[in-house]
Design a binder for these strands. Structure first.
Lengths: 121, 121
DNA sequence: GTAACTACTATACCAAAGTATACCGGTATA
DNA sequence: TATACCGGTATACTTTGGTATAGTAGTTAC
């Protein structure tokens, strides 16, 4: 409940620091995980909805990444016994709390662009 | 100078939001960028020092990633006209400010582990 | 003169990540 | 009976990322 205390602990133990960063990296790395998480931030969605919402993704990748995210506790998969069966994907609390990470990423990205105006290429 | 205002602006414009996240992802993704940045957080270092500090990295990858990070404005490369020539790599202000991003990554990683105790595998 | 250090580069290879295309069984609609 | 939607899977391929191994040019120490 007190993240800054946990953070200080972690900083004193390089091992868990690295472990925690790797956990986070596993969730955000790859071409499609962030687009999928981004789509689900607007609410739960079905497979085909996600496929339509995320340009250029193939069902193979969508399926694979959803399984990955489910195993890592980022999304839940719920099968409804309707006809035809519908499957809904939803972010867990952990998944939703990724916005914290994304927010500082946006913040850093913007600052970085400001810091380097005209210097690139 | 007021990051939260910038952040809100970005949230209203999906385009720059995505752009900013991609900028950040480019800097942290890959197997070696974070280890290199991590090593440089303790102060500027020379090529061989980095090579010794980062287990298992090959000079090819170190060279490539340093060039990458330099082009992206994360590290500076300074050649000293000594004998033999020494080359020092140092984090830019942007590079140093990445700690903000890494800190929330650690924080989220730790929280996520707490949220999912015993649930994985 | 030969061994070792500096900061790399070159070539070839290998493995992971991602793409393309097709297909599956089931249900509903026309 | 044919077509289309649902939630995927199968197979094969390409592209990207990373590894392994060797070598470069210059300098210093023995």
């Amino acid at each position: 409940m007190s993240p800054s205390i946990e953070l200080n602990k972690a900083k004193q133990c390089a091992g868990s620091y690295v472990l925690a960063i790797n956990d986070t990296m596993n969730v955000v790395s790859g071409k499609w995980k962030l687009p999928i998480i981004g789509a689900l931030l607007f609410g739960k969605k079905r497979f085909k909805e996600l496929e339509r919402n995320i340009p250029k993704i193939t069902p193979r990748m969508l399926s694979k990444e959803l399984r990955d995210l489910e195993m890592n506790g980022i999304v839940t998969r719920t099968v409804y016994d309707s006809v035809p069966v519908t499957v809904e994907y939803e972010l867990t609390r952990s998944g939703q709390s990724l916005t914290k990470v994304l927010d500082v990423m946006v913040e850093w990205g913007l600052e970085h662009r400001e810091n380097t105006v005209g210097k690139a290429v």
